[in-house]
Amino acid sequence: MSDNAVDGDEVAHIADLARIDLDDGEVERFTEQFGEILAAFEALDEVPETDREADLTNVMRPDEVREGLTQEEALQNAPDSEAGQFKGPKVS
């Protein structure tokens, strides 16, 4: 077993961080696949440190009011809304 191996608990922990529920079959498959994929990523260790020439330009524009979506348009795809607002799950 290599250093890259992740176990089922780690996969479940990452899934928790990413806010994605997984079923048992997915945890099992991902555990095996992640070991292989992370082992392939290991090749990046051989990459020399390289200067990154950043070619950056300021693209900010003046903060002016522009036409945007109407409230109705913004809400049209929401699974749930109330009084013209998005309705999310309860906080606690």
């Binding site: 992740v6 990413a18 806010r19 994605i20 997984l22 079923d23 991902f30 799950p89």
Partner: peptide
């Protein structure tokens, strides 16, 4: 149903296919 985290995780379990879950998880890692 559930709190924010539970509800999000259920939405994403139902909405995303396996390849998308794989990449989001590996990226998170």
């Amino acid at each position: 149903e559930g709190n924010w985290n539970e509800s999000f995780a259920q939405s994403r379990e139902a909405g995303f296919g396996e390849e998308v879950k794989r990449r989001v998880l590996l990226g998170t890692y």
